[in-house]
Amino acid sequence: MTEDKSNDIFTFPKWTWVLRPGVAVAAVGGLVYASVVIYLGFSPKATDVGYMPTQPVPYSHALHVGQLGMDCRYCHTGVEQTARATIPPTQTCMNCHSKVRANSEKLIPVRESYATGMPVPWIRVHDLPDYVYFDHSAHVRRGVGCVSCHGRIDTMEVVFQAEPLSMGWCLECHRSPEKHLRPAEFVTKLDWVPEEDQLALGSRLRETNNINPPTDCNTCHR
């Protein structure tokens, strides 16, 4: 019986057959590799931490907060009352800068904004997705320090995002707030360390102030 060789062109040549196990390993390995790369590459730790956009005005927190000792709440006034910390209006800057460094070149956009009434277009650094509703006052009033989420702003010349701010990261604290609680009066003290063990202090504060952070979905997603 003659063999039908018309389909032979679709068959790999014999010498390639030895490569078959390698192909299988490469396929599975490649899949695993791709998954790991995507998982790590797209995680907030990789994409968000370290984000440091250039601002229209080279405002230095290291100078104003670190050196001069301004409290966070002098400018971010909404942080204890409302959901948003609020970026200060140009007026707040001019409170000092109408006299201090009144002719500085770096402050031209600020003076221009104050004169014309147009805002200074700051670039948002800590940006949560639109379907997340975060409330600052609920955290700041209850003893979560600014540094817990924003890092050592008082050492930053240009603000960058220090923490991933991912949902998993938020849930970590919500599930065990005693790891990060501090007495409410030290909330804006970025270099504060507890005198006693953090867990002991945190548990006590939790107890006293009846702090039970919810982990329900609609706490943040509404």
């Binding site: 590459g41 797209f42 990789a46 994409t47 968000d48 984000y51 956009p53 006034t77 909404g78 009352q81 409302t82 959901a83 948003r84 609020t86 970026i87 200060p88 209006p89 140009t90 007026q91 904004s113 104050y114 014309t116 009434g117 147009m118 805002p119 200074v120 277009p121 700051w122 670039i123 948002r124 940006d127 997705p129």
Partner: peptide, 23 residues
């Protein structure tokens, strides 16, 4: 892109008295 598009925050130049943004 690995990050969503940049977002601007545009505060007042002079905020009206008693007004808190977003409230």
């Amino acid at each position: 892109s690995c990050r969503w598009p940049k977002e601007e925050i545009v505060p007042f130049a002079s905020r009206p008295d008693g007004r808190v943004p977003g409230v």
